[in-house]
Amino acid sequence: MATQTIQRKDPSPVVRQPNRSSKLKQLGHSKALIIMCLPAIAFFVIFSYCPLPGTWIAFTNYNFRDGIFGSPFVGLRNFEFLVKSGQLWLLTRNTLLYNLAFIVIGNILQIALAVMLNEIRAKYFKKISQAIMFLPYFISVVLIGVIAFNVLNYDTGALNTLIKETGGDPIKIYSMAGIWPIIIIICQLWQSTGYGSIVYFAAIMGIDDSMFEAAAIDGATAWQRIRYIILPSLKPTFIILLLFAMGGIMRGNFGLFWNLVGNNATLFNTTDIIETSVYRMIMSQNNFTSSTAVGLYQSLFGFALVMTCNWIVRRINSDYALF
């Protein structure tokens, strides 16, 4: 703790000089890096910053004739329907909890998978298992919905057929709201874990070999190597990914939820998220203002959360903060 406090007061005296011209010089030194960043910067400027003024549409009664900034201002009226439908709390809760589960369980599994992959010595087995885990990422959520229905449905589903054949009573899974969070989380993890583990795997590959060599000389076991070298080295990656994920915590995976649950209101209590509910409410209303309002609500919430988490992280260890 003490060293960190000192660091913050006197930041990197060797690299940085406290005057402006040196900052420009520094930019000059980083020319190559900046050029490499340009496509990404251009992408965000064009697709994320340029449309930002368009969010004004959320506060207007939009019409084609007057355009976005000429249409009459209506204050927060476009946000009203979420409150009036009486579902704002339920939707916010579901969306948050699902995303928390996805982030926490997802990251733990991804790290575990990356570490396990790293420990495998047989080259071909490693490559093949990596490819197999990667594949679900490329399967469309529409197909996942169809597969789930064919496995889980009451009349003809594989699971219930098996139960019936073995003399049991079939289960009405599509009427059991309580079980769906588990099904949805499993589907999401099945789809995303293999893909997500690549980042961690890459981070492990980047760990300085000399540390492993030193550990080997000291007689560290495989478990000790994981515990004292790999996991601590993954911490910055984990925190950065976590901070990024926080920004989208109010955004649900619409495709997955819609294809698994659809219009089955029996399950809404545990499966309805902001996206699916809003889609049902305004899809046929020709209503861009309300959908923009919802998008803005989600964005502001995500923005606030990223800022807060980043602030907390910076307080604990500024090296791990995004900014």
Partner: peptide, 22 residues
């Protein structure tokens, strides 16, 4: 080690971008 202004700006930018997709 503390990052320079550039990284800060990019970081805030990224966060804004992540948060906004309207």
């Amino acid at each position: 080690m503390k990052r320079n202004l550039m990284t800060r700006a990019t970081g805030i930018g990224l966060a804004l971008a992540l948060g906004s997709a309207c």
